[in-house]
Design a protein around this nucleic acid. Structure first.
Lengths: 142, 142
DNA sequence: GGCCGAGTTGATACTAGGTCTCAACTGAGA
DNA sequence: TCTCAGTTGAGACCTAGTATCAACTCGGCC
């Protein structure tokens, strides 16, 4: 079963209609190799209007099909990603984004909660750096 | 020495002029008890235009006088805060923001760097939860 | 004092990244 | 077939800024 079909089934299972516009947006998203800006997708995606593209991205975000990444310049991007709680490693050179399996702060949260009196409900973490490939490239050219 | 004077001196030391507009923006910022939106400040601050308010906030951000906090709904706010690397604990109920002394991820970063091959250069972390006061209030009213 | 030039200002236009509105369309079920 | 909720796209609008540019300010120099 293709990813498109899988996502369509997921949408139907949640009571959403799988319309041509939504299929177009999903196909456009799946065609992207790495992250994308919502507006850029709206421009490329001839099969759906801007509002529909934004709505569909939000829908897929709720479904856990895509997730939002904040780049180091603060601009938001979207990424086809696994669902559930995870974080991202963003390469500041080539822009690739890598999922992080473990949650780097889960251990520290309890400590912080104890110290501050807060009941911590959520957190937002992005890591920025240079990926192995870019480092290797830099080492060769240096 | 008042905070306003201290910041003015800091600006002068860096070669910036301390103009009436800047003093008005700084005074308006210092008058805020908690975080504020840049646009909201621009509306309240009669002594300076919108562009100047945004420029001054950026300047103070560079100086480390204020810092940017991302609320849990994604909207940016500014906060008079200590300079240097630190994170924030945002109360999702009353909106107060508390500085976090320790960096919760510094320990985990090396591990992640080793596992991923990334050279980690920076990170962005915000924590969201309910502060002690809001929890106490909820416990009483329950 | 007058001049110069860099720094600063505010109005305004513009941009990115979205959300809201609303009339029109669609499609599943009665 | 009718109905009605879900969906759509155009376009207006919003927030959070940045860019532009002519005008202003101020310190230093003659």
């Amino acid at each position: 079963m293709s990813d498109l079909e899988q996502i369509s089934l997921e949408l139907e299972a949640r009571g959403y209609r799988v319309t041509p516009s939504r299929r177009a947006v999903i196909a456009a998203i799946l065609a992207r190799k790495n992250h994308f800006a919502a507006d850029e997708l709206a421009k490329r995606c001839r099969g759906a209007g801007r509002a529909t593209v934004f709505r569909t991205i939000r829908l897929l975000n709720d479904l856990g099909v895509v997730c939002r990444v904040l780049m180091d310049d603060g601009s938001p991007r979207y990424l086809v990603s696994r669902s559930g709680h995870h974080h991202h490693l963003v390469c500041t050179e080539c822009g690739t984004v890598q999922d992080l399996d473990q949650c780097a702060v889960s251990g520290a949260l309890r400590e912080i909660a104890d110290a501050s009196g807060y009941e911590i409900e959520g957190h937002w973490l992005e890591l920025y750096g240079r990926c192995a490939a870019c480092r290797a490239k830099a080492a060769v050219s240096a």
